[in-house]
Each structure stands twice: as structure tokens, then as C-alpha cells.
Write a protein that binds this DNA or RNA. Structure first.
Lengths: 193, 193
DNA sequence: GAATTATAGACCAAATTATTCGAAGATTTT
DNA sequence: AAAATCTTCGAATAATTTGGTCTATAATTC
């Protein structure tokens, strides 16, 4: 390969598809290798471990998502509701990310019950946001899969943090501030700005 | 459980969801058990093996699909094109089945290239039918996963068999005959009539 | 043509997996 | 209420899978 970074990107894209479909645990290095048409051991020349690949994939997806959100929201003049609507339309992207979540916590499906409970407090649209939250919770716990209580707590904290900028109806809060608050809550510590 | 058959049905529905999502190989008995909120070993009281569960699931899905197709096509007065349209609308059901296929042949993704080649000969709608064919091919080879050449051949044979009743434009062929021919090709040996 | 970069096949220890078995709760039958 | 049967599951297991390593070797660069 000409460039080491280029090959890493190829791995990220290719493995990303498999991860998003089957999740971390169910995705095997053999599959990733096969998709890349390479020997399994060759991948270890570019990545240290399966976890490193996964981390790179999630970071990549988070960056895309963050960019999409930032530019999209900035181009909206009307208030917060339009933003919500946009997020709803972009659900597909979130779905991809929420698959990572499904994957990571494949043994803790109970979290969805929790989300369902929360959902009832808001409109259907908020589901899209909740997916983001899921992702956020997931990202924070990728390597702490075992501790589901910690996960639940992380999700709850994120929800709490989102309540102010997203769900409050106070019109006087300026949209730019809300945007930044939301992005901060969702991506803080995940994506370098 | 009151009734043995009733519990088997529960397993089929529950396991079916997991199978359709992750496929045969990636679905574990632990997952099925967890979804049923039962001990893993209890399932073996009702089913002999994971394969038996899978077979029951696929049979169940095939029966539903067959019934849907039969009643739907029978209620259509205009020619074959309307039927195609219906099939197109019902794509969701087929998607579920095609997931089984993905799952079973998770290492033979090349088949999809083959399908793509075929697709170009027909309209987009035919994709729906092709999914059915995929399913058919899958069903025929569930327990011959290793031999991918045999699979390709099975799919080709099915396609060939479908060409006459489905894709030929000859108006003189009566729709009832076509229907039977199609169902025969697709479900022959799979679902007891 | 030596040194470095890149690839993959054989291999391994650890983990996972489908399945078995026996024991113990239930429930029904006598 | 004892016996017989039905249902459940935890623990054990044998076979397979899996992430990762090591070594040999091909390709590229110097």
C-alpha cells in the first residue's frame, strides 16, 4: 500500500460497515480481513487490536455526524423546532450509530426499556435525539461493557444535560447557544473540535 | 407451559427475530434463551437442536409469505404487472427473509454481485422477486453452506424456472397458471400445500 | 544487494458455543 | 399424599472459534 494512513481509512470504512451491522462482539477479524481481501494477520500491521479498529470507526462516524449536525443547524433560521425536524430526517445516520450501541450492549437490551420510558415524556421526534444519546452512552462505555449500571447512569446524565438546551421551550434562549450546548453534551470528550 | 406447541410457537417467533437480524451462525442459543427469559437448557426440551429451531423459523416465515402471495395475487384482476407491483410493496417481508440469506451465506457475499448482474436485465421492481429467489436458494442450501458453487447453481436454476411464468410478457398465458407456476418454483419442497 | 516495509500462513491459548446430564421443582395422576 | 410425570435449569463438556503472535517471504526503497 502506498500510504499507511490511506490503508487505515480503508479498514475503517470496510470494518465500519460490518461493525454497524453486527456490532463489536459479533464482528470477527476474519470477516474484516475477508472484506478487505487481505490476510488477517496483515491488519495487525496497521492496527494493534480489534478494539483499536472499532475505536477508530466510532470516532470516524462521530466526526461525520458532528459535522452534519453543525452545518445543518447553522443553516436554519427558525427556532429549535426546525432543528428537531432536521434531526428527525437524518435519523438514518443515527440508526447506523445506534447499531453500534445495540452491538456493544447486546446483552443489556434492557436499556431500551429505559429509553422507551423516557420517550413517553416527549414527542415521537425525540426518538432521534435519544438515538444520539444512546450513541453517546455507548461511546462512553465501549470498554466497560460489563458494567451496565454505569451505562444506565451515563445515559441518564446525558439526558439530564440535554434537557435544558433541547427540550425547554423558553424562546428567549438564543439558538446558537442551544446548538453549542447540545453539541457539547453529546460530543464532549469524544470528538476533538 | 400449558401446551408444548404453544411454547414452540413462542420460540419460533422470538428466535426468528434474532435469526433474521444476525443470521444462523451469529445467533447463539444463549441469546435465544435470554429473549425467552428461560434457561438455555430448557429450550432443548422442546427442540432437538439449534438447526431444528432455525428450520422451524424458516418454515414459518415461508408459510406466511406463501399465504400473503396467494391471497394477494388472487384478488388482482389485471395482469401480471399488478402482481409485481404488489410484490414490490411487500418488499419488507422479503427483506426479512433475505436477511436469513445474508446470514446463512455470510461468507459468500459474491452472490449479490451475481444478482446485480441479473437485475439489470429487468426493472427495479424485480429486485423484490430476486429477494425471494435468494431466499429460495438459501432454503435449499441451509445445510450445505460450505459449497457455494452449489448455491450459485441453485439460484440460477430457480431464476431459470421463474423466467417463464414471471418475466415473459406473453399476454395469452392466464394469470392463474402463472401464479401457480411461480409458487411452485419458489416453494416447491418447502411448504406443504 | 542490503535494509526496510508489507503480507500472509501456520500456530496458540483463551474464550465461546451447542449440547448433555442429573437433580430438583412443579404438576398431574393414582 | 405418594407416585409418576412433566418442566426447568445449573454445571460440565467437547468441539470449535477467535483475537492475536511469530516466522518466513515477497515487494519496495535505499
Amino acid at each position: 500500500m502506498v500510504n499507511k494512513e490511506e490503508f487505515r481509512r480503508k479498514v475503517i470504512v470496510s470494518a465500519g460497515q460490518i461493525f454497524s451491522r453486527y456490532g463489536f462482539k459479533k464482528t470477527t477479524m476474519d470477516e474484516i480481513a475477508k472484506a478487505l481481501k487481505m490476510g488477517k494477520s496483515s491488519i495487525y500491521y496497521y492496527f494493534e487490536s480489534k478494539e483499536e479498529i472499532f475505536e477508530a470507526v466510532v470516532l470516524h462516524e462521530a466526526n461525520i455526524l458532528r459535522n452534519e449536525l453543525t452545518t445543518a443547524i447553522k443553516s436554519v433560521e427558525s427556532p429549535i423546532d426546525k432543528m428537531r425536524n432536521y434531526v428527525f430526517v437524518r435519523m438514518k445516520s443515527f440508526e447506523k450509530l445506534s447499531n453500534y450501541y445495540n452491538a456493544i450492549f447486546d446483552k443489556n437490551l434492557d436499556h431500551f426499556d429505559f429509553i422507551e420510558t423516557i420517550r413517553e415524556k416527549y414527542d415521537r421526534e425525540e426518538l432521534a435525539i435519544l438515538r444520539l444519546i444512546l450513541y453517546h452512552g455507548a461511546r462512553k462505555n465501549i470498554f466497560n461493557v460489563a458494567n451496565s449500571e454505569y451505562t444506565a447512569l451515563a445515559i441518564q446524565t446525558t439526558l439530564k444535560g440535554l434537557e435544558v438546551p433541547l427540550f425547554w421551550k423558553k424562546k428567549e434562549v438564543n439558538i446558537e447557544n442551544r446548538l453549542n450546548a447540545i453539541l457539547d453534551v453529546l460530543f464532549n470528550g469524544i470528538v476533538k473540535k
